[in-house]
């Protein structure tokens, strides 16, 4: 299949979106250090190309599922920094009205089911969503994000097999960032690539450079076209790396500094920036403007979130049941 041609506007949009993911995470990191946000966070610096490459290949009516590390997925899918920030600040205006927090962000209206922080929990949901797309004759697909750690939970097998036997319009997107919390993938998996497991389900599996946004985009266009055509799921593995620890309390001592440094050489944003500058798609002056506009967007979101009302304590009791 021929590669989809990316226009300069699309390239700039992907760059802008990745930068928004990164700057959002950096800002959030300091908000936590300053003690302004409750709870914990699982950050995604370093994995922006995966989130943005996948989501840029989706249509408006498509859906994504996400994980305990959902901030970049949400931003890539178009959930506003404002509603994300308000949820992180535990405000009533947040995308879960303060009932979820960082690990639950999302907006079904924007095409992202609020994130699912039980590892692997989103895989069968994605299959079910895809089953309903087909029954209702909607020409949409589901992109289901999960980490390589989730490839070892039983429901991975159940859900991928189910989607495979029914040819469901879903793409299973494994972000292999090499560590499940502190556990290196080599310790818990005998195959070199998660994508090799696709053979067990009779579906295509592919491993690509998850730190190259255009490579991710092209892989998703291919897998997405297959799903839309009724040919079933693909297991797409994106090799990437998280620059931060697993969660706020994790300094990441289990990783060698040389390893972290080597992956930082492959920073998806720096790489793409250099390429777009070389292609003259991006001008240095424009870079400054983009950064300034993102900073303004984030500062506005933070200022608004801080002013927003907290949920009323007794709202604890509402929404247990739908009526």
């Amino acid at each position: 299949m021929a590669e989809a041609k990316l226009t300069p506007e699309q390239k700039l949009a992907m760059y802008h979106r990745m930068l928004l993911c990164r700057m959002f995470e950096e800002r959030v990191y300091f908000l936590f250090l300053e003690g302004r946000l409750p709870g914990t966070i699982h950050q995604s610096q370093g994995q922006e190309a995966s989130a943005v490459g996948i989501c840029s290949a989706l249509d408006a009516g498509d859906m994504i599922t996400s994980t305990h590390r959902p901030h970049s997925h949400a931003i890539a899918r178009g959930v506003s920094a404002r509603s994300l920030m308000a949820e992180l600040f535990a405000k009533e205006t947040g995308c879960c009205r303060g009932k979820g927090g960082s690990m639950h962000v999302g907006d079904a209206g924007a095409g992202m089911l609020p994130a699912i922080a039980i590892v692997g929990g989103g895989l069968p949901l994605a299959a079910g969503y895809a089953l309903a797309f087909r029954y209702l004759k909607q020409p949409n697909i589901v992109a289901c994000f999960f980490g390589e750690g989730a490839a070892n939970i039983g429901v991975f097998h159940e859900a991928v097999n189910m989607a495979a036997i029914w040819n469901l319009p879903v793409v299973f997107v494994c972000e292999n960032n090499k560590y499940a919390a502190s556990t290196a993938v080599e310790k818990v998996m005998r195959v070199k690539h998660v994508s090799e497991r696709a053979a067990a389900y009779g579906i295509p599996g592919e491993t690509v450079d998850g730190n190259d946004v255009e490579v991710v985009y092209q892989a998703m266009v291919k897998a997405g076209s297959r799903a839309r055509a009724g040919d079933g799921p693909t297991l797409l593995e994106l090799e990437t790396y998280r620059f931060a620890g697993h969660s706020r309390s994790d300094p990441g001592h289990y990783r060698k500094p040389e390893e972290v440094a080597a992956w930082k050489e492959r920073d998806p944003i720096a790489r793409y920036e250099a390429r777009l500058l070389a292609e003259k798609v991006l001008e240095p002056s424009e870079m400054t403007k983009i950064r300034a506009s993102i900073e303004l967007e984030l500062e506005t979101a933070i200022a608004q979130a801080e002013q927003d009302p907290s949920p009323k304590p007794e709202d604890c009791l509402t929404d247990v049941f739908a009526s």
């Binding site: 079904a108 089911l113 929990g121 895989l123 069968p124 949901l125 994605a126 299959a127 079910g128 969503y129 895809a130 089953l131 309903a132 797309f133 029954y135 209702l136 429901v155 159940e158 859900a159 189910m162």
Partner: peptide, 11 residues
């Protein structure tokens, strides 16, 4: 899980 996903779509 698949039933839950389908229910979210109104099934």
């Amino acid at each position: 899980g698949a039933a839950t996903g389908a229910a979210l779509m109104g099934m």
